[in-house]
Every structure is written in structure tokens, then in C-alpha cells.
Simulated assay, not measured.
Amino acid sequence: MIPLENNIKMGKPNASDKEIMRVAKLASCTELIEEKGLDTIIGGTDVKLSGGEKQRIAIARAILKDAPIIILDEATASSDAENQMEIQKAISNLAKNKTVLVIAHRLSTIENADKIIVLSKGHIKEQGTHSELLLHKGLYENMYMKYQESLNFKIRSKEVS
């Protein structure tokens, strides 16, 4: 259990408050910091963070570290739609001038990637940009169409007579 500020500073232990707030803004964490405070102890039973909040703090830490290569494994998996959008913005800020490897099942997470590699049963089946893969009409296009269909799913309640 450590303060929120120190969690972000793991990326650069000697970071100034100004640097922390800069990366917090880029990672869409400023509202969280304003609400909870940088000195708030996280990781215990007192302060619970959502999956999306945890991801954005991790992204702030990664932006502060300024590593040239970033690996993101299911970065939006534990997030609701609102947090997913904030995480996507934070990832865009993190990815500037870096090599980013994104492992994802949510296709919306990878749509803007420079290159998408589609794996199936441990083998590369297709690769290209989102547009190229849709034109190819293969596995990716099939997954994308199913994803688009799922966005229109509605839950209907049974009328009780």
C-alpha cells in the first residue's frame, strides 16, 4: 500500500509534482487525483480503484518513464465503456514516438494501429492495417463484423402475464 503519487513516481522516482500532473493529464487521471488526492494510500481496503482507474495510473507511470517500447496486454479489459474511452485517449498519448505492442481482444483497442497481426491457434493468419484487413475479407473482417453486430444487441425482458 503506497500513496497514489509514489505509485506514479515508480516510472521516475525523482519526478516533480509538475511532471506528475503533466502525465496525469495525458493519462486522463487528473479527475481521479483531484477527487482522491496524491497522498491517498491505494491498494488497501480503504480506497478502491476501478480497473479503468488502475490502468490509467499505470499509463501515467509509463508516460513518466518514457520507455521507447511499451507492451500493453488487454489494456481495456477491466473497464466500462466510459473508462475504455479514457484509456484509449491515454494510450494515444503514451504511444507518441514509441513502439507499442498491443495484445487485445477488443477490436476497438487496435483499430488505429499501424499494423495489426491476427493470430489463430498460435499462427499468424493475417496482417495489415484495419482497412486492409477489412478489404481482405478474412478472419479479421469476420471478427470485426461480429463485433459490430454485438454493438446492436439489446436485452429484452419477458413480459409476465
Rank of each mutant, 00 (worst) to 15 (best):
K36N: 11
T99N: 09
N14K: 15
D66G: 12
A67D: 12
K65R: 15
A104Y: 02
S131H: 11
K36I: 13
I41L: 15
Q88G: 04
L64T: 01
I59L: 10
S92N: 15
E31K: 12
A77P: 00
C29L: 03
L32I: 13
A24C: 15
G122C: 06
E19W: 11
K96W: 08
I57V: 15
S108W: 00
E35H: 13
E34A: 04
L26H: 05
P13Y: 04
A104R: 05
G122M: 08
T129W: 01
P13M: 08
N93T: 03
G43A: 11
E19F: 08
K36S: 07
V23R: 06
V23C: 10
G51C: 05
R106S: 04
M21E: 15
Q84H: 06
A15Y: 07
A113F: 07
D73V: 05
P13F: 06
A62I: 03
A60C: 11
N14H: 14
S28P: 02
I20S: 01
Q55M: 10
L32G: 05
M10C: 13
E86I: 01
R106Q: 09
D80C: 06
I87S: 01
G43W: 10
R61H: 13
M10W: 09
E31I: 02
R61D: 11
G44S: 06
T76Y: 03
I70E: 08
V47R: 01
I71A: 10
G51F: 11
A104G: 05
A77W: 02
G122Q: 10
T45N: 15
L64C: 11
I33N: 06
R22F: 15
I20R: 02
K98R: 15
D46L: 10
I69P: 01
K115Y: 03
Q84N: 11
R61P: 03
G52M: 07
G43E: 11
K89L: 03
K12A: 07
H123Y: 13
I63W: 13
E31L: 06
L26R: 05
M85F: 12
D46A: 14
G37P: 08
A81F: 12
D66F: 08
I124E: 08
E19S: 09
E31T: 09
Q84L: 00
H123S: 14
A24Q: 02
A60S: 09
I124H: 02
E19K: 13
I124G: 01
I117Q: 00
G11L: 04
I63E: 04
S50D: 10
I63R: 09
K25R: 15
V47E: 12
V23A: 11
L32T: 14
E74L: 05
K98Y: 06
P68Y: 07
K54A: 01
I103M: 09
D73A: 13
K9N: 09
Q127E: 15
I87H: 08
A77M: 02
K48E: 14
S92M: 10
K115H: 10
Q55P: 07
L94C: 02
G43V: 03
A67L: 06
N93A: 09
G51A: 08
D46Y: 04
S79V: 11
A24Y: 02
T76N: 07
L38F: 13
K89D: 10
I110Q: 04
L94R: 09
D80K: 05
G128T: 00
A81V: 14
K65W: 07
A67Q: 13
